[in-house]
Design a protein around this nucleic acid. Structure first.
Length: 616
DNA sequence: GCAAGGTC
């Protein structure tokens, strides 16, 4: 009897290695190709089988317009909405389609090990197309492996529960690709044609629009507008002072702020006339600051920007290198919960040779470490953790600093919580209430290894309830409300994540885009300051159609394609419906812009007439 | 050469 031949395809080479290692128990032979192919013999569905495990490198295809629409001077952007879209190799140099079709030859079964998300489901069908397999054919069968992590347990479990790939989820991605392409390119071509060199000094090669990049820019400009329209306001507050056991203590007012100096002076007089503070309440409460959950990509990017000064693009490049050199685990993950099978002891042991964090890792090993807090498991990859110890000269200064943070975060996540005692003393004087607070650390916990998160110690002298104290002075402090600062890159990342703009992998790309297109500039402290061009663009959308630069535009697309993913509405109906709406917006936008440009030309003509009149 | 999403 001839044996079965099984082809397995993963989303990236490293996953193919993991799957082949588990299923062959390490007994595989690897041969080079467009991507490596791992071969071995094992049982498959009760029969002896020859296995080949290989991978793609992300998407095999990407969508674009046919050649006829590529010449932007010869095409009306409005026609793009009803144009055909064609798929072509995402990376022609990699020759992935040819690789898949060659390896599939003679195979009786195809098992798809793509990442278990919508994009992965879409890549499943790209692989099916290249391999020549068809769903439900007699001579070859197609299976989908659904795995929640790349552990031996989950891989074997997925093998015992093979399912079919989900066509609807794949179609939802097709819908998004077509909508993003048509909307983005139509607006971008129109804007570039009409704004470039037309007026002002908005000189730029391309003036782009996109349902992710434009709301991203919108966040930066929104903050800029808050700053530029901010009107500072004076305020007053009372601070009584006392001397207790040789310490001067400044008290805070329950009313916090007043915006009228006369009322402030009245209260100051009341307090001074009384002159005696009554201690009405003393409370001590133990508070806890929780250790961090596992590190995911977005949180790594935020820390890299705010604490290490690395932009997201650079942070990902450094992380990628640390990953391929085996120092940290896979750096693209949404999960913050460690899998149940995670080897904490092994990871700690791997760090004991680290010059700076090694002794702390050793201490956790000998004295015991904590089970990490919950977090979320999205089922993609485990949180980002160190894998082996390193020294600075092995990595270079930047990679070393990022690696150090990954170590500190991991160690922090298996350390005790930080415990501290908060003391609050309440006073009354002249009918007004004041208080002071102190705090002291009881258990340092994870803040030992992440000292910047530590509790700032504030000691208070002893007080007794019912005690009466003489006030030493009563300050009427005059302050001024201040404008917020420019949006920091790490705040922007938080806003994007919260509003569903981009993914962990694409957030750095969008931020990089708005910088490279000269819409914002990164200033010291990684603050994002919009340029004249960026401000003009967003103000333009705000005048014509504010939806265009709001994050809801992305949520709307996501929500519509989810109907496809769930099989509730047909793919083509959703695409038509969404494109129809964007086409209306596009037409209105074009009309308004053209009217405005006509108006400007009219103004110029008036100015010219006035000039020639006065210069006669 | 314009979008956004994979991954390198």
């Amino acid at each position: 009897m001839t044996s079965q031949k099984v082809l397995m395809v993963a989303e990236k080479p490293s996953i193919a290695v993991s799957i082949a290692s588990v299923l062959s128990r390490g007994q595989m032979s690897t041969r080079k190709g467009a991507t490596d192919v791992h071969e071995f013999n094992a049982m498959f569905l009760g029969f002896r089988a020859q296995y080949k495990v290989t991978s793609v490198i992300g998407h095999v295809f990407s969508v674009d317009f046919p050649a006829a629409y590529q010449d932007r001077t010869a095409t009306d952007p409005l026609d793009l909405f009803q144009a055909q879209v064609v798929k072509s190799a995402a990376n022609p140099k990699a020759h992935i389609p040819r690789h898949l079709s060659q390896e599939a030859r003679g195979c009786t079964h195809l098992v798809l090990w793509l990442d278990c998300d919508r994009e992965g489901e879409n890549i499943c069908f790209e692989v099916i197309e290249c391999s020549g397999f068809t769903m439900n054919s007699r001579n070859g069968r197609v299976y989908r492996a659904r795995f929640s992590s790349i552990s031996e347990k989950d891989i074997l479990k997925a093998m015992d529960n093979l399912v079919e790939p989900n066509r609807n989820e794949a179609l939802a991605v097709d819908a998004r690709q077509e909508i993003d392409l048509k909307v983005g390119v139509a607006f971008t071509r129109f804007q570039t044609n009409y704004f470039q060199g037309k007026y002002g000094n908005l000189d730029a090669r391309v003036i782009s629009y996109g349902p992710c990049q434009t709301p991203t820019l919108g966040f930066c400009v929104q903050r800029y507008l808050q700053i530029s329209t901010f009107k500072p306001e004076k305020f007053w507050t009372l601070h009584p002072y006392i001397f207790q056991n040789g310490h001067e203590v400044k008290l805070e007012w329950e009313r916090q702020k007043l915006f009228d100096v006369n009322v402030g002076m009245m209260f100051q007089k009341l307090v001074l006339e009384d002159g005696i503070l009554d201690v009405t309440e003393i409370s001590e409460k133990q508070e806890s600051k929780g250790r961090p959950v596992g590190l995911n990509t977005v949180n790594l990017l935020k820390v890299a920007s705010s604490a290490l000064g690395f932009g997201p693009q650079m942070a990902m490049q450094l992380a990628e290198r640390l990953y391929t050199q085996g120092f940290i685990s896979y750096p693209r993950t949404e999960s913050t919960a460690y899998p149940s099978s995670f080897d904490f002891r092994g990871t700690l042991a791997a760090l004991v040779n680290n010059p700076t964090t090694g002794s702390y890792a050793e201490k956790l090993l000998s004295e015991g470490f904590q089970k990490p807090r919950g977090g979320v498991d999205v089922g993609d990859h485990p949180p980002i953790t160190p894998v082996k110890s390193a020294k600075e000269d092995m990595l270079g200064i930047d990679a070393w600093r990022l690696y150090q943070y990954v170590c500190q975060h991991f160690l922090g996540s298996v350390s005790p919580d930080c415990k501290y005692i908060r003391t609050r003393v309440e006073f009354t004087i002249g009918g007004e209430s004041f208080h002071c607070t102190g705090q002291r650390t009881v258990v340092e916990g994870f803040t030992y290894i992440m000292p910047w998160l530590g509790i700032s110690e504030k000691n208070l002298p002893q007080f007794m309830k019912g005690e009466k104290l003489e006030v030493s002075k009563v300050e009427l402090y005059e302050g001024s409300t201040s404008a917020p600062d420019y949006l920091s890159e790490s705040e922007l990342i938080s806003l994007m994540e919260k509003n569903g703009i981009g993914t962990d992998a694409s957030i750095p790309v969008h931020i990089n885009n708005i910088c490279e297109r000269n819409y914002v500039q990164v200033q010291p402290g990684r603050k994002l300051v919009p340029t004249a061009l960026g401000i003009s663009l967003i103000r333009g959308y705000q005048c014509i159609d504010p939806d265009l630069c709001l994050p809801d535009i992305r949520s709307f697309i996501e929500q519509q394609i989810t109907l496809v993913a769930k099989g509730q509405v047909e793919h083509s109906r959703v695409v038509q419906h969404v494109l129809q709406q964007f086409k209306q917006k596009f037409i209105y936008f074009v009309q308004q812009v053209i009217n405005f440009l006509i108006f400007l030309r009219h103004c110029d003509a008036q100015v010219d007439m006035a000039r020639s009149f006065w210069h006669k």
